[in-house]
Design a protein around this nucleic acid. Structure first.
Length: 431
RNA sequence: GGGGAGAUUCCAGAGUGGCCAAAUGGGGUAGACUGUAAAUCUAUUGGCGAUGCCUUCGGAGGUUCGAAUCCUCCUCUCCCCA
């Protein structure tokens, strides 16, 4: 399997440095991707980089996952984000461990194969590197002129937009990241850095350092930034990031995220986020174009990714839940569910607990869903939702804000299903 | 060190004494249409015991019958000149 070709037909290559392909043909090559350890879980924004590493390992080369304990605290000027705070070492290690556990689902870290994956943390080699040593040994080899010519820097300096300027720390970022590459080159024989297209400038600072200090040749390869056809940010839902950690994003929500991708995006994503082959994907795309309402693409995409990140069981559960929630499910069907099925179906649904005493004499929906269970942030909002036909209880539409709920509404004697709009479910558990 | 501009509801951005809970756009939410899509259209978008009341226009005071709007001080941001 040719790594570059593989990524190329999948639309995962934005830019490659000349000679990269030849390098892969010449020998087993180590390549790395950087990951910020800002949280103790990866989110799907990280997935592209992870998939690049996965393809790399599949084609016989050696993946290195670099945890940016040091760089993560500086903040990349191209990210526009604020400068970040230094994570304390305990948190850093904790996050690193968690990330490794997740990455192990994609990459083989443990085998004795020569191309087993490796995880490193740049904090380990940066923490004892003094400022003086750094500017003497590294800074000396790169000119400010060179650093200023990077797009990420230029954008921040030509401050026609009322941006807040760029701090020296941010300016230094590319050097620190470049040094990582040099370090990996010297200590791990790593010859390629991969990343999003916004990383190109940073990566080439690394190859430049390697050329000037080590007299070696290293390569750069970037993938396009993942976008959505509607211009929105990829990987976000109403409730924020889509995490790989099932505690943060349940498998049901995870599955739903992928199932909801638009037609246009689905064709793109299935190539990037699954390992399906070219032929199979082409068939799916054709099938989908013939009968878009079947959403064969989305279904397969959601299946593949959910199974890969979670498990086949989690996937089955998510599908079952989706069928009950979005299928022809009626109030009657809902009432027939036994407790076990009900709980598993609503596994990923936000839950609220309410005391039985609230229900015995009946309670107004508005009060229940604001004061007792904070499904809505304010009473005004729930009233507006009811007025626009947006609220259902146990799959039956609430038509008036005066609607009263009592024990007769309970499913399985202790549950109430509240639904806001089409897609948002909340489970109320009565004690 | 000197000079200038600014801080408004989720964001951008109007408003410069009463008609302002505050234009417009974006975003969010809900509805219609659909395929749990996209696009489009509609409604809504501070809170509440709701024809009214309460809290909001960087912070603290003050003027006034009445302030987002005027005055004083403070905090922060940006720009220009040294």
């Amino acid at each position: 399997m040719n790594f570059v070709n593989e990524l190329s037909w999948r639309g995962m290559i934005h830019d490659v440095m000349p000679g990269t392909e030849e390098q892969f043909e010449k020998e087993m090559t180590s390549a790395y991707v950087g990951i910020d350890p800002t949280a103790d879980s990866l989110h799907i924004g990280h997935l592209v980089g992870v998939m690049m590493l996965k393809h790399l390992q599949r084609s016989g080369h050696k993946p290195i996952a670099l945890v940016g304990g040091a760089t993560g605290m500086i903040g990349d000027p191209s990210m526009k984000s604020q400068e970040r705070n230094l994570l304390d070492e305990f948190t850093l290690r904790h996050n690193q461990d968690c990330l490794k556990r997740q990455l192990a689902k994609f990459l083989d870290f443990d085998s004795n194969e020569p191309n087993a994956a490796v995880m490193v943390n740049n904090y380990d080699w940066m923490k004892n590197f003094t400022f003086l040593d750094f500017i003497r040994d590294i800074g000396k080899h790169i000119t400010v002129n060179y650093m200023m010519s990077k797009d990420s820097v230029k954008k921040r300096i030509s401050s026609e937009s009322s941006s807040s300027g760029m701090s020296f720390t941010e300016f230094t970022y590319q050097l620190v990241q470049g040094y990582d590459f040099l370090y990996l080159y010297q200590n791990y024989n790593c010859k390629l850095q991969m990343g999003g297209s916004d990383q190109w400038g940073n990566i080439t600072t690394g190859t430049e350092l390697i050329r000037r200090i080590a007299g070696g040749t290293a390569f750069a390869m970037t993938c396009p930034l993942i976008t959505k056809a509607d211009g929105g940010k990829f990987g976000k839902t109403e409730s924020g990031n889509v995490w790989l950690d099932p505690e943060k994003t349940s498998p049901y929500e995870f599955y739903q995220f992928w199932l909801n991708t638009s037609d246009e995006d689905a064709e793109k994503y299935i190539k990037i986020f699954t390992l399906l082959g070219q032929e199979e994907i082409n068939e799916l795309v054709t099938m989908h174009r013939d009968a878009p309402h079947q959403r064969a693409l989305q279904k397969r995409l959601a299946e593949e990714v959910t199974v890969m990140v979670h498990s086949r069981d989690d996937y089955d559960m998510a599908v079952e839940a989706s069928q009950i929630l979005f299928g022809q499910g009626t109030a009657d069907q809902l009432k027939k569910l036994n407790e076990k099925t009900l709980l598993s179906v609503f596994d990923g649904v936000p839950r609220f607990e309410v005391d039985m005493s609230e229900l015995v004499s009946g309670i107004n929906v508005v009060d229940l869903l604001t004061e007792k269970a904070a499904v809505f942030p304010s009473k005004g909002e729930i009233r507006r939702t009811i007025q626009s036909n947006g609220l259902s209880i146990n799959k039956e539409r609430v038509i008036s804000a005066d609607f009263v709920i009592d024990q007769s509404a309970l499913l399985g004697d202790r549950y109430i299903l509240a639904q806001k709009g089409k897609k948002n479910y909340y489970l109320i558990i009565v004690r």
